[in-house]
């Protein structure tokens, strides 16, 4: 394994893990997309929650499996059907220009495309097809990526979006957004 090719748990990871543990019900089946080190999924599993973890990075899936998790290597929802009661995602969100790309596995955990929202946009378009009725999404967003813009992406897909938790880390605000499918709509 190459640990330097896997995003290590940081403030954003801990914030999303706390939110996920608080949100997940004991009978929920949770999907963590882009699990990286597996920290969030393992925190859920240790709380007695059933969880499946995915990542595109071959080093990350090995790291997550060594934490005792059920792991699938895939790209967002490609090989995943569901349904899940809760989907948790700490996405790559750093705005990255083409000439800044270095093309390694760790970059998959960071590179959000030119506006930082490329992966989030695709995730927002696809996630509802993998949720059970009443299913929810928890996603971490940074002020670097734009809260309003990300909230708009999910509202466009028919989600009700609320700020679940917020934390200031150095010069960056981190929020966890909770996206719920509107019922009866």
């Amino acid at each position: 394994m190459s640990p330097d090719q896997v995003y290590p748990p940081r403030e954003d990871t801990y914030l999303l893990a706390r939110a996920a543990i608080s949100e997940a019900g004991e009978s929920d089946f949770v999907l963590e997309v882009g699990t990286g080190s597996g920290y969030i999924a393992r925190s859920l599993q240790e709380s007695g929650i059933r969880v499946l973890a995915t990542d595109i990075n071959p080093h990350a899936v090995k790291a997550a499996r060594s934490e005792g998790l059920d792991v699938v290597r895939t790209d967002l929802f490609m090989g995943i059907r569901g349904p899940f009661d809760l989907v948790v995602f700490n996405p790559p969100y750093l705005p990255t220009r083409a000439e800044e790309r270095i093309d390694d596995w760790l970059e998959c955990a960071l590179d959000g495309g030119p506006d930082g929202r490329s992966v989030i946009r695709q995730f927002a378009e696809e996630v509802s097809g993998h949720l059970s009725p009443g299913g929810r999404v928890l996603i971490l967003v940074s002020s670097v990526t734009g809260f309003e813009e990300v909230m708009a992406l999910f509202r466009k897909q028919g989600f009700q979006v609320d700020i679940y938790q917020k934390e200031r880390v150095y010069d960056e605000d981190l929020v966890v957004l909770k996206c719920s499918m509107k019922t009866g709509g």
Binding site: I56, V61, K62, R65, V71, V72, R73, T74, D75, M78, G79, I80
Partner: peptide
């Protein structure tokens, strides 16, 4: 055919 290696299914196209 998508491989399962060391317990991990690889479902990349």
């Amino acid at each position: 055919s998508y491989p399962i290696t060391e317990g991990i299914p690889d479902l990349l196209p």
